Structures are given as C-alpha cells and as structure tokens.
Computed example of a mutant assay.
Amino acid sequence: MKIAISGGTGFVGKHLTQHFLSKGYSVYILTRSKKTSSENNLHYVQWLSESSNPTSALEGVDVVINLAGKTINTRWTEKAKKEIVDSRVESTKAIYTIINSLKKRPSVFINASAIGIYGTSVDQTFTETSTIKGTDFLAKTVEVWEKEANKVNELGVRTVLTRFGIVLGEGGALPKMVLPYKLFAGGPLGSGQQWVSWIHIDDLVHLIHHIIHTPKITGPVNAVAPNPVQMNQFGKTIAKKLQRPHWLPAPSFALKALLGEMSLLLLKGQRVLPEKALTSQYQFIHPSLDNALGDILKSQ
C-alpha cells in the first residue's frame, strides 16, 4: 500500500509513518524542503514550492492523509490567527489539486480536523451527528478547514474528517500539562469542570489504520477515547501517576492574562464521544485515562 502524508514530520505524523512502515507500506512524506531517506519504503516529496512537482511521485497512491497546519499552541495574535487558518486552507487546496491531477485517484482521503468545531460546553455531549457548531475562533477555523477538505469528496474520493481531541503522548499538549506536577506545582485549571476529550497516540494511529481499511466510514469521525473526563479529574490522574500533589490552582483570570485568547484551550472544553469508531467495531487500546496516562508516564 502506498500512503502520502502531509505534516508527516510532526508528532502525529511521525507515529503514523512508523506504524505504516512496520506494516510494510510505502510512505511518501510531503515536505517543503528537499530531503532524502535511507529507508527503502520511506520517501520525501517536495511540495508547496514553485519548482516542486509532487503529482508524478504520487501516481498510484492509495491513501492521502493531510495533517499540515501551523500549530495552535501559540499566542493568538491577529497575525497568528491568519497563519493558523491560511496554513490549513492552503495545504488542503494543494492536496485537492494533487488528487485532481492524478490519473488514478486514491481510495481514501483522511483530513485532520478537531473537535473544536462543536464549540465549548459543560453540560452537552457531542457525537458526529451533532449539528451544533461553535462560534469561537477554533470552531470557525475547523468549519472553514472541513469545507475545503470536503471538496475532495466531490472528486469521488472517500473523504474522512478525523476530529482530533487532545492527543496524549510524548509530544503535543501533554508534556506541558505534566510539567507543573513534576515541579510539585500542579493543580486545578480554572473551574476544573471543563471537559477534556482525549485520545492516546497509539489509538489515534490505529483508528486511522482502521478507517483506511473500513470503506463504510465517511465524513466526520471523532478521534477521541470513549471516556472523556473533567479537567480536575485529568489533573488528579496525572498527580496519581507521578505521585505528586494536586493542590495549586491556576485561576482563570491568571491564565487569560498569560495566554490571552489561547487560554480557551485550557479553560473551555467539550464532552465528545467516538460514536462512529465504536459502531464500526474499533477496539480501543487505551479506553480509560488511568490506563492511557499509566502507559505514557510509566517511565517518568
């Protein structure tokens, strides 16, 4: 199987690449700079530059996965907001152009997305059938992003929008959440009642593998574990695994002053369930937070 990945050098992309290589698949990483690989089944394909011609290298590709986009873990100035949106729209448009120009189109296009599209809520539960969409910056960003990705579906390619929750692993948000506990300064963030819909990196990788090999799955898929928790419980579980106290609160006003609008990522949340994953018989490796954090933090 031949798989193309944009954003393949990031946290999620690296895990996906290693998984697919372990299965004997050929992986083609789309990159802005010229790179070479010493591994037989790993290839780098230059794109998003005037001199690049990725189409020829991607003829015969079976799967295209788009993870590209500027990180949202930065202070949301107006300039940063524009870059966050533009980077996602630009890469998705480029993917559309590539797929449209292929003689034989892939069987599936998987576009990274986010549960932020649902907006934030303390008392609502969201599944893929939820029609409610948020009005904050993240929700609007995801809506624009998914609209662009859905154009690939119009080419007759099965299109799946994997709405990521907080991805737990050695990269991403978790190390920053764990650090205060390592310094004996961990505690509740804001009210502590906000929901955290999370997924272990291993489950995210295996869920994407499952999506590739399950043709009936289309449209949005919530890439989250089946047991979301509230932030206070999340912190207590970290404290338990690291044998550290959970005592020093970080009030909302302090986080807003420090992070600005980006504090939304910590102070607000949504309770999201993986209905499509479960109904398609995906078996979670780490269904509970206790199990997931135990696996990730066991050596720390």
Rank of each mutant, 00 (worst) to 15 (best):
Y181R: 12
S52N: 11
A149M: 08
L267Q: 09
S56L: 13
L248S: 10
L255Y: 12
I238K: 01
K256E: 12
L42S: 03
S197K: 09
L273N: 08
L30G: 13
I285R: 14
K14D: 09
R75Y: 10
D123V: 06
K2D: 15
S280T: 08
Q18F: 01
L255E: 10
V160T: 05
D203R: 09
P106V: 06
L258W: 04
W145F: 06
A80C: 03
G219W: 02
R88I: 14
E143W: 05
K14Q: 14
L21E: 07
S121T: 08
I99C: 00
I115Q: 11
S26Y: 03
F126D: 08
V45W: 11
V85R: 10
G219L: 03
T92C: 09
P180H: 13
K79E: 15
D86G: 05
Y25M: 03
T127I: 06
K176T: 10
G260W: 04
M177I: 15
F164D: 02
D136L: 00
M231F: 14
K298H: 13
V144N: 07
D202L: 07
Y28C: 04
W76M: 00
L258M: 15
K104V: 07
K79Y: 11
H43G: 06
G24N: 00
I211L: 01
A239M: 14
S51G: 14
I212N: 00
I166N: 11
S91W: 13
I110C: 11
L289S: 05
W47E: 05
T31C: 03
L266E: 08
V167D: 00
S130G: 12
I5R: 00
K216H: 09
K82R: 12
T127L: 01
L179Q: 13
T218N: 13
D295R: 03
V272I: 11
L248A: 13
G134L: 08
V108M: 14
T214D: 01
V196M: 15
V196S: 04
V272Y: 03
G7S: 09
L267Y: 02
P249C: 06
T74Q: 14
S107R: 10
K14A: 03
Q281S: 15
K14R: 12
I99L: 15
E50P: 02
T218A: 15
S113L: 01
H15W: 09
N111G: 14
S52H: 05
T71Y: 08
D136F: 00
N73P: 02
A149E: 10
A139E: 04
L174Q: 08
V224W: 02
N100M: 07
Y282E: 00
K103A: 04
K298T: 14
W247G: 07
E146A: 05
V122F: 14
R32Y: 01
S113N: 04
I117M: 07
K276N: 02
V108C: 01
K268F: 02
N227S: 13
V178P: 13
W76Y: 00
Q283M: 06
T92E: 07
T74I: 15
K147V: 02
G134A: 05
N100L: 04
V45F: 12
A112F: 05
L58T: 08
H213M: 03
V157D: 12
K104F: 08
L48K: 10
D62I: 04
L204E: 10
H19K: 08
